[in-house]
Write a protein that binds this DNA or RNA. Sequence first.
DNA 1: CCAATTATTGAAACAGTTTGCATAAACAAA
DNA 2: TTTGTTTATGCAAACTGTTTCAATAATTGG
Lengths: 179, 179
Amino acid sequence: MVKEMVAVMGSKTEEFKEEKEIFLEHIQKSGLRRTAQRDLILEVFLRTEDHLSSEDLYWLVQKEDPNVGQTTVYRTLKLLTEAGLAREVRLGDGRTYYEHHFDHEHHDHMICTECGEVIEFFSAEIEELQDQMAEKFNFKPTHHSLRILGICGECQKLEREQSVASGAQPRVRVKTTLN
Amino acid sequence: MVKEMVAVMGSKTEEFKEEKEIFLEHIQKSGLRRTAQRDLILEVFLRTEDHLSSEDLYWLVQKEDPNVGQTTVYRTLKLLTEAGLAREVRLGDGRTYYEHHFDHEHHDHMICTECGEVIEFFSAEIEELQDQMAEKFNFKPTHHSLRILGICGECQKLEREQSVASGAQPRVRVKTTLN
DNA sequence: CCAATTATTGAAACAGTTTGCATAAACAAA
DNA sequence: TTTGTTTATGCAAACTGTTTCAATAATTGG
Ligand SMILES: [Mn+2]
Ligand SMILES: [Mn+2]
Ligand SMILES: [Zn+2]
Ligand SMILES: [Zn+2]
């Protein structure tokens, strides 16, 4: 019984071994300290394959340890970004989201302004053309951010149905004031 | 003398005739009213060919009429955007900039993270590829936002000089954490 | 001119994020 | 271990850009 628990916890700790090593290394290299809350936040982040706001992550972490504060989550997400484990993503609603960076290919996003769905895509051709453009202006690009806003397939379908039946009633509109 | 003044003021009012008509039309169509502050804000906006934050514009307007409030500038910029005269631009520092939209071609931006310089560019190929990408995902694009962050030619030059001479001292770094 | 409607204003509210500070936890030296 | 030094934490308060509120002012149409 105890053995099983140990086994479970063991597997839990095994799971993202590489990422955790990277984090530890970054922690040490920066003269910081390993703490329970940092470990937990990293753990929860790693097993959530999604675009998470600091608050999203905060609530997930809360469920497992109600003593972790918002500020710590903010601070830890910054650390994870520095360590190369997380990447900041702006989807256009004013908050900052984070996604996995380690072992994840670069990509850009399409965002549905009706339902908020996020589609990830990558185009080597676009990337190439961006570099060409930069070169033309003697500009040395470090990174970029490409967002395509519009209506996802699902929402297009619903739109069609609704416009036929009742007097077109728009659904929950996602706030995309844009950032 | 008076004639001259009238002439000057006349030319001033002639200057952006088309834009002003569009604005008036929008005002009327929306059941709003033409006011001195709206006229002034539009005027100042139109003669400033730049990426202006609401606050930037506020200060410019202040110089000509100290009785215009920030709030009015915010609201008027929103009106201008609705009317198709202005376009919102996020350069990545958390604030919203506005640029001329009427009679101005669509373009995207390169932003120097050293000095903040903004380079406008347009690539029909990139636009085309974006549409193809969207189509592939059955996504109906309405607009997009492409930013290339990096170092402008001028800053690259300075970097080179400095790294040769003194112990590389970075210049004013523009805050581009955000958005 | 009056009454009703609508706009403007500065101040206060707001959201997301950051900072200051007192306390707690890490960790290395003894 | 115990101790001492340094860092992390969580809370509250500060901050930034923007929006809302409530009172005042301006405009309109009778
Ligand atoms: Mn993503
Ligand atoms: Mn521009
Ligand atoms: Zn959708
Ligand atoms: Zn530069």
